[in-house]
Amino acid sequence: MGKKFIMSYSCGKDSTLALYRMIQQGHKPSALLVTVDKKAGRSWFHGVPNELLDEVSKALDIPLMIVESSGTDYEATFKEALIRAKENLGIDSCVYGDIDLEGHREWCTDRCEEAGIEAVFPLWQEGREDLVYEFIDSGFKTVIKNVNLQWLGEEFLGKTLTREVVHDIKATGSDACGENGEYHSFVYDGPLFKNPIDFEAAGIVKTETHGYLDIRGK
């Protein structure tokens, strides 16, 4: 029997690869759980606007479960969403795209234990660079959306991740996978998608520490 799971989905490359592997192994996704900044109307961390989250859900043909949070209630709202998914969708597990950060795994596992479900980490302890290349070679396409300016310049924003771009990222001293927060991405096409996500760049926003590619639906 395969797992009936909810996917903790950021729209980034790691959670997409984890989702892909689970589906290939015969498990069934019941929903995409996406945490959204209540004030901004965008996903936490990756900053994907709600309108594009809907398009992603349609292209993947997986229902969307939006979890709105102000930030201070992030943990509580996430746990409540898992409990609702268990009660209403009959899920037995939540899948995460984390690779090797113990603090992240502990947080995710604790939320699942509170909800009475299993936490699953398909990419856990695998080589970061190997995972990036597996993602690219599998045919997925992702655009670099956020960068930590301490590591990567704003010229990386908007680039589609290729083996050549990964080489350029490594040349800066950054992790190929961006696992230390050097960059985040938005996956817009690939083998799981019925159609590419049609989006456009709406400019670059910079703070003292980060650069963000603002994207919106066409």
Rank of each mutant, 00 (worst) to 15 (best):
I62L: 02
I117Q: 03
T172I: 01
G190N: 01
L157D: 02
K86M: 02
C177F: 09
G190I: 00
P63R: 03
E200C: 14
E182G: 01
M65I: 13
T142K: 09
G103H: 13
L19H: 08
L19V: 07
K170L: 12
V147N: 01
G139N: 05
G41R: 01
T77H: 12
W44E: 11
G158L: 05
L101I: 09
D98T: 02
G173T: 01
D130Y: 12
S69E: 09
R216H: 09
F135P: 02
V187I: 06
A201Y: 14
V143I: 10
A31M: 10
D100L: 15
E154K: 13
T160G: 05
L101A: 10
G211C: 02
D175M: 04
T172V: 04
A202G: 11
S93F: 04
D100T: 11
E102L: 10
Y9R: 12
Y74D: 12
G139S: 06
R105M: 08
M65D: 15
A115G: 06
H104E: 09
G217L: 15
C94I: 05
T77F: 15
Y96F: 13
Q25A: 12
G158V: 04
A201I: 11
E134H: 10
S43E: 04
A31R: 10
E55T: 09
V36Q: 06
S15A: 08
Y20K: 01
L52R: 03
P196L: 06
V34G: 00
I136G: 11
S138T: 07
I66N: 15
A119G: 05
V67N: 11
A202H: 12
E114K: 12
D92F: 02
Q150T: 15
Y20D: 05
P191F: 00
